[in-house]
Design a protein around this nucleic acid. Structure first.
Lengths: 111, 111
DNA sequence: GTGTCATTTCCATAATTGTCGAAATAATAG
DNA sequence: CTATTATTTCGACAATTATGGAAATGACAC
């Protein structure tokens, strides 16, 4: 969990992750990311590896390109953890608006 | 936002923040925290300052003690940001179980 | 095989972060 | 004012993280 937070706790990596989230399941080749973010290849590769180690993004090969994509379940787990452990139990978001009482994830295990 | 993530991206600080979240609005004096977490005062002070700079905790004085407490709205904002920007728009948590379709925070602005 | 494209790994270097004892500050009591 | 308690700041050092050019790897086309 600390690893995931640490992975997102960097300007370039947060931008990178957001980009992949927007891009969707299809993902994006490293080169295109480097161009979009205006980063030297070696620096980008470093950050991609960091996010991969943290389990937030996935890598697959397509021809000579390596395609990276956001791991939504991992992000889901992170948000779930924060909601459960760092939000005063009863619910961090005080005005969940229409959504009726956001049940803490803990309750769902037994349910 | 990066600052908030970075503040939580450390074993001791995450534990510290969770402790303060559990403790509630009343908060806890620095000494008690140091004892609970078994950290030297100077180290703890460093981490408290880090979390404070990130806006995740608040400080108030009570006699000679400095009481720290979690800033729930700040945490709320952080989770909101992650939900909005890092969770594929339509909703990161795919199976919100009982909770009927967790609306993206974006929609609530206009509502 | 050779050439080329996409990307990573290696390397050196710069910058930041974490640690904790000791000294400094702040508040209160006597 | 002195003593005591609570906590921070200072300082020095170790450890980790970030950067980017150059060389290495992997995949494909010819």
């Amino acid at each position: 969990m600390v690893a995931a937070l640490g992975a997102l706790a960097h300007e370039h990596r947060l931008a990178l992750f957001r980009l992949l989230v927007q891009t969707g399941e299809d993902g994006m080749p490293a080169g295109a990311i480097a161009q979009a973010l205006d980063l030297p290849n070696s620096s980008l590769s470093f950050h991609l590896a960091h996010l991969t180690r943290a389990g937030l993004i996935a890598q697959r090969r397509q021809g000579r390109s390596l395609i990276y994509s956001a791991d939504y379940p991992a992000m889901n787990a992170l948000v779930g953890y924060l909601l459960e452990n760092c939000c005063g139990g009863a619910g961090c978001a005080p005005d969940t608006d229409a959504a009726p009482v956001r049940r803490p994830l803990a309750e769902r295990k037994t349910a």
